[in-house]
């Protein structure tokens, strides 16, 4: 969903109807007066609705929507690694290289991926399809080596598995 998001104007008009509904449903999960609690889920929602990344305007609008200082949103967005502050590819691949994965060959997996996509960590393929990231332990160590493709974990990786996996991505 990459509908046009409205980023200025009155609070009731920000983003779009669908996004507002999602935000409001999150806000309602916290006690009255604690809308700030919804910042993280809200940033996830906005990132999903905005080609996978958060622009300054988007964050400002969220601050407005939650009635909190803009810097508080910036602080959160820059603290957590799942938030992207620059445009990314259509698909995000996060490869774990932490100790359990390292022991099981994540380095090989990482270099295979880098070679295959022709990019390094933190980069996006020229066609804008993939962004490759190195990440810390994703909590799937018994399936090492592993990666996260968009919202799905893929474990016990081998170069062949990666070929099939990326081949299947539209």
């Amino acid at each position: 969903m990459t509908a046009n998001l409205q980023l200025t104007g009155h609070r009731d008009q920000l983003f779009n109807e669908t996004v507002r509904q999602k935000l409001d449903s999150w806000i309602s999960k916290y006690p009255p007066g604690q809308a700030q609690s919804a910042v993280i889920p809200a940033l996830h929602i906005l990132q999903d609705a905005h080609q996978g990344w958060l622009s300054e305007g988007l964050m400002r609008a969220l601050a407005e929507y939650l009635d909190i200082p803009a810097i508080s949103v910036f602080e959160v967005a820059t603290f957590y690694t799942m938030f992207e502050l620059n445009p990314v590819g259509q698909h995000k691949i996060s490869v774990c290289t932490n100790i359990s994965c390292q022991l099981c060959g994540s380095e090989e997996i990482a270099s295979y991926l880098q070679k295959k996509l022709g990019i390094g960590f933190g980069q996006t393929t020229a066609d804008g399809k993939f962004t490759l990231k190195e990440v810390e332990c994703l909590g799937a160590c018994v399936g090492a080596p592993m990666l996260l493709l968009d919202r799905d974990y893929h474990e016990h990786l081998t170069p062949e598995k990666i070929d099939t996996l990326l081949g299947g991505v539209k």
Binding site: E56, P69, A70, I71, S72, F74, E75, T78, F79
Partner: peptide
Amino acid sequence: IKELGATGRGEHMEIGTYV
């Protein structure tokens, strides 16, 4: 008025206004 904040984390943490 909270205009200054600490953005980023760890060694990359910076005090500023972000924009």
